[in-house]
């Protein structure tokens, strides 16, 4: 019954529910991408299954981290929205990539980014 989750369960407050927000945006005719945490290693701020949704203007709702990598996901989203094909993104802390965005908690996450529609 876990994640009968207070995270991914029925949308309580739909304004804060990323998938409900995505549906509303689609109904409004906006282009939308959904990012989903699909794997985590070590200390990760958001559990597997968490969503960030992004529209074509860069508006977003939800989170895939504690605010560490959202900017990078949002930037990729505009390309996924125009290109159509889904992408796999990976974020973590590694010496050679330390200059890039990463997770200060030291964990690693894999995020699947796809267009809706």
């Amino acid at each position: 019954m876990t994640s009968m989750d207070m995270e991914t369960g029925a949308p309580g407050d739909e304004r804060l529910d990323p998938l409900a927000v995505a549906e509303r945006w689609v109904d409004e005719g906006r282009s939308v991408a959904v990012a989903t945490v699909i794997e985590t290693w070590g200390s990760a701020p958001r559990p597997v299954g968490s969503h960030l949704v992004i529209d074509g203007e860069g508006n977003f709702s939800g989170s895939v981290s504690g605010g560490c990598v959202e900017g990078a996901v949002i930037a990729e989203a505009s390309e996924v929205i125009s290109a159509g094909a889904p992408r796999m993104l990976e974020f973590g802390v590694a010496d050679e990539t330390a200059w890039r965005v990463g997770l200060s908690c030291g964990g690693r996450i894999r995020v699947y980014l796809e267009r809706v529609g």
Binding site: M1, T2, S3, D5, M6, T8, G9, A10, Y112
Partner: peptide
């Protein structure tokens, strides 16, 4: 495959 489970809120 990625399985995303959605169970009702308690």
């Amino acid at each position: 495959l990625f399985l995303n489970v959605h169970l009702p809120a308690p």
